[in-house]
Structures are given as structure tokens and as C-alpha cells.
Design a protein around this nucleic acid. Sequence first.
RNA 1: AGUCCGAUGGUGUAAUGGUAACACUACAGAUUUUGAUUCUGUCAUUCUAGGUUCGAACCCUGGUCGGACUACCA
Length: 554
Amino acid sequence: MSEEKSLNFLEEIIENDIAAGINNGRIHTRFPPEPNGYLHIGHASSICLNFGLAKKYNGLCNLRFDDTNPSTEETEYVDSIKADVRWLGFEWANELYASDYFEQLYNFAVKLIQKGVAYVDDSSAEEMAAQKGDIGKPGINSIFRERSIAENLLLFADMRAGKYPDGAKVLRAKIDMTHPNLLLRDPIIYRIKHVAHHRTGNKWCIYPMYDFAHGQSDSIEEITHSICTLEFIHHRPLYDWFIQQLEIFPSHQYEFARRSVSYMITSKRKLLQLVNEKHVTGWDDPRMPTISGMRRRGYPAVAIRQFCDTIGVAKRENLVDIGVLEFCVREQLNKTANRVMAVLDPVKVIITNYPDGQTEQLIADNNTEDEHAGTRLLPFGKELWIERDDFMEEPAKKFFRLGPGLSVRLKHAYIIKCDSFEKDENGTITEIHCTYMPDSKSGSDTSGIHVKGVIHWVSAIHAHQAEVRIYDRLFTVEDPANAEGDFKDHINAASMHVLPRVMIEPSLSKAAIGAHFQFMRKGYFCVDTDSTENKIVFNQTVGLKDSFAKEMKK
RNA sequence: AGUCCGAUGGUGUAAUGGUAACACUACAGAUUUUGAUUCUGUCAUUCUAGGUUCGAACCCUGGUCGGACUACCA
């Protein structure tokens, strides 16, 4: 009964708050993306946290789009974000938009003016920057700081009415130009932008700054625990100041360290660059760390959730080994993916003592890890395709596969022995000649022969062809965001290999888009969205562990 | 320079004043009709100097190191 799992620091805060009766034990979180890009693995972490916490403590979690900058935001992104959150397995209590609060936010600003703690400033961006001071050096007051309340009210109304061009005026909070926290040196809270908004159209020509929208949006929604990443820690005093001045619901913000994963990049700006400059085929390129990319690559949602859970949450910087993510993916797929046979790099095997033209149907289990997975029929014949690297002309030590005089088990089928082989003028093996042991058939083996190696194969006359895309990490360095030079200098030029002529067993030819398989002894693969009626395309999701390859490297 | 945040095996996370643990990785072995899976084992950890205490990863003080902050972005 006492399967006590330790709490992370946020759970601890929440449990303490519940125990103290704060908000009567009500828990309400939110996931607040800006719709200016696709969600990535870092967002997945935040989604799992916010939705997960709400679920664990019988609370609610909103999906709120922080859409305060119309220049960068688009409906396409809204749609993709909703799809990704749902695919990850979460459903929001309310779908909300900061833009829904524009009128209320405007009134909040008016209230600050009336209280004498906000003013309209005509200074240019350069002037304000100059007056701001510096780290460790106090700023100086703007000459517009002491305008009368009446004048500020009038000016702000005129800003809304569109009487001024972009950049002519801003509304600022009047706090303290000498504050050690730069964010409290009279921050801008409204700016003029004659730009259409993806939801409000041309209704507004002034837009609140993120800092004047985010905290109040949380407050309006009565979010109890407003969870965000560490870089917003300096903003908290500002949000608290607004809440206090406006006398509205006191949401509390808590910050955690964003999760970095090795060989990945999670800057929306940089990801957008990869897309725009065609280093990848799109936001959902299977090499991208986006949720849509990982989905297309074949990572199961449950694996991503498990990953987020495994790496936990804390406040220190981190760089999580991508191997942990791959482990979670393999662990899920091992339980769920049906086993099939596909030969990625084919070489012909001819079984000389097998009758010409004969075929037989073998029974193959789909997944021994899943007792409900069932079996399928697998055709066998005289000519087979096997993997080129399952044959060695001069077998290495401990090579348990095919080579002159060596015997091997064909999975689900017979034991064969290699008698001879043929090469072309380049030294490439073209054909391998074997004999099979008729009494060694899987399931009814009476041969008494024991072989150590088992290889996969596909019957040549029954084989279908497929394109398979093999992926490697997108970057060559562990931490591309912090590596020397531009992050694009570290793009892995060989991050994708296309195998145009892979031999697949016939059962695979009608697999549905998105279906997961284990290609035995090779890895996990899924059917790509590029597949058509006549051509099926597979993505390699992740390879199998390969202790033999590791051994050979030594 | 100022303010704030952080520091536990190679990596990530626990231990909340009482034997430093779990996962991944690495390594070794067992099982295996996937060199997969599974199972067993091994290596390896509290930034530093003081203080409080019977007892400190934990509390206090100083230091060191790392990070964040100076957009009409979020």
C-alpha cells in the first residue's frame, strides 16, 4: 500500500497549499502557448506538467493562447497546437485566448492611469533605451513621466482611436526607474501596432505587451498555480505588482527549468529557420524535435509522456540524454509493435535443394510480447532476400550468421547452410548458395541441429518493395544551441538516408499510415504520410539496441 | 557592476536533521528461433570553508563556479 512516490517541488507546493486551505483546495493550471510556431519536446514537458498536475489534484487545466503580438501569430499555429495537445492525450477545461481579454485589459490600463501609476510616453525606443540605465546602473525618468491623469486618459483613448502611427506613443507603468530589476523600470504595457490580429481583426490598433497580459489573464481565469519556465522569474514581481494595483485574483507563479535534450534544439526561432531555409522538409519533418515531427517519426504519445515523467522537473539547468527518450520509445513499441520482416540491404540467397517453384506458408507469431497479437502466414520459397551484412566472406570471430560453411536459422523457417557464393567484378556478393535442412522447420524441428544465429529474410518472388528512410540526429554536437559558432554549422549533413528498394514481406504492403512495426533485428518503423497507393514509405522510428555492432567496434 | 536563481554518480531525478537512492548509460554474466526483449550483478555521487547539532546533502554564514535579466518579442 505504501508505494510512496516522491513529490517534485511543484507537487510539494500544491500539497502544502491544499493542506493550508488556500483557494479551498481548488487547483487550476493552464498551458499558455503563443501561436507563433509548432510545439516541441520542451512544450510537451510543460503540457504534461500543467495537465498532469491538474489531473492528479482533481483540478482543471486551461489551454490559453497568449496572442498579444499579431505580427507573428497565425491561425495555422492555433490549429496545430490544439491537435498536438490532444494527440499527447490531454483535454483542456477551457479554450481561451488572451485576445478575449483585450477590452478588460484596456480597462485595467485605464484604472492604472486613474490611480496615477501609468502614463503615456512619447519618447522614441532609442530614448527609452538610453534612459533605462543598465545592469547595476539606475535609469532616469522620462520627461513625460509627470503628465496629468486627465491628459494620460485622453492620450491613451486617442491611441486606441488610431490617432497616432506605430511607435509614436506607448503606455508605461510608473514604478521605479532605479529599481535593480530592470523589468520594473517603468515597463511598457501598451504599444501602437496598426496590424490585423488573427482573431480580433482590425478592431484594435493598440496591443498589450505580454507582461501586461499574461499575469492578468491568469488572474482573470483564477489560475491558482501559474507554472512557467525559469526565464520569467524576474517577471513575477511585475505580475504581482499589477495584481496588487488592480486588486484582482492573486495567481501565483512558479518557475521550473526548461528541459533541454541532447542533439536537439528547442528555440522556436531556430526551428522556424530550419523550416524556412529548407534544412528540413517542414515542421513535421521526422527529424524535428516538434511534437508533430516526433509523431510522424513514430514516437508514441505514451512514450513522450513517460519521458516527461521520467526526467522530472526541477530548477537547475539540465541537458537530458536523448537516449532516455529513445529508451522510452523502445519500451512502448516493444510491447505494442508487431514484428515483421524487411530486408533493408538485400542480397539473394538460393536454396539449391529446395524444389523449383514450390512455396509454402509458414505460421509466424506477430509479437511474443503481446499474447493477443496473433499470428500471420508468411510465404517461403527457393529464392530469398537476406541482409547483406548477415553474410561475411571471411567470417569474424563470434559472427553467428552466414558465411562459407556456416549454418544459420531463418526466422520462422529452416536452418540453412552456406555452400558457395558468387561475386561480380567489383567484389560485391551477388548470390549465396545454400542447402536447407527439411526437418528443421520452426515448430516441428526434429533435426537435432543447434545453431546460434537467427536471421530475417523475405521470399524473393513474394516480396514487395518499399522506400525506407533512416534517420540520424539532426545535429552533430550534444548542445547545438550553446555550441561554438552558428547552430546551423552543426547540422548533420547525413541525418537522413533513403533506401529506395527495401524488400518487405507481403503482409506489410497494405499497412495503414502511421502504423508501427518492428522490422525484426533492425528497429521500429512506421508508415509515413508520404505513402501512396503504389508506393509505401517507412520511417525508422528508432533502431534496436545492437550489442553485436558495439562488440565489433571494439 | 546590481538583482535573482541554481550546484547530489557520465546524464536526469530522489532522500525535507538519522544507513545517499531510483532510472538511463557503461561494464560483466544468464536466458533467448530477434546479437532484441527479459533477468542477475558491477563501477560510479553530495562545489568549497566555517558554524549550529549527539548527528548535516538538508539549517546558518562566507567563498567558488554556472545561469538568467538591460526587445514597442513571448
